[in-house]
Amino acid sequence: MNGHPGSVKFEIELLVNDKSHHAAIRAADTLLRVLREHLGLTGAKAGCENGDCGACTVHVDGVPIKSCMMLAIEARGSRIATIEGLRNTPIQQAFVDHFAFQCGFCTPGFIMVCHALAEHRPKAGDDVIQEWLQSNICRCTSYEEIGAAIKSVLRWQG
């Protein structure tokens, strides 16, 4: 299935949060735009759309990816998870317990990164936590609280 030059759209199937979705997209549409505008999944936020802020982070085959930096068509055949797919995870409760947000715009992205970190590196030390969280920006500067939240989950798992 290929797109065509011009404004031609084509149908694509995406597996998002364990559900199959169909959307008519352009090859140039980013995964972020398709999630938000075609599938109505607005949890991933359009912040910088330049790969800097991390507000649009989702999981693709379990790996945190900035959805503004991926074409939707690239994600065909992959398992995509968005913030809407997380339910009652320890990291979500930890963000509440540690007041790890203010305006909340960056929160879905941070939670997706933290959730992946807890899944992949449950014994992560400070260096690894810092390395992973460098991917995201919080303009309200809740970094201390976000750090406390992820550490509480890692301890909880350990």
Partner: peptide, 10 residues
């Protein structure tokens, strides 16, 4: 968004 269209092949 990307303002122009392109063909995609894999």
């Amino acid at each position: 968004m990307i303002s122009f269209d392109f063909q995609y092949e894999r």
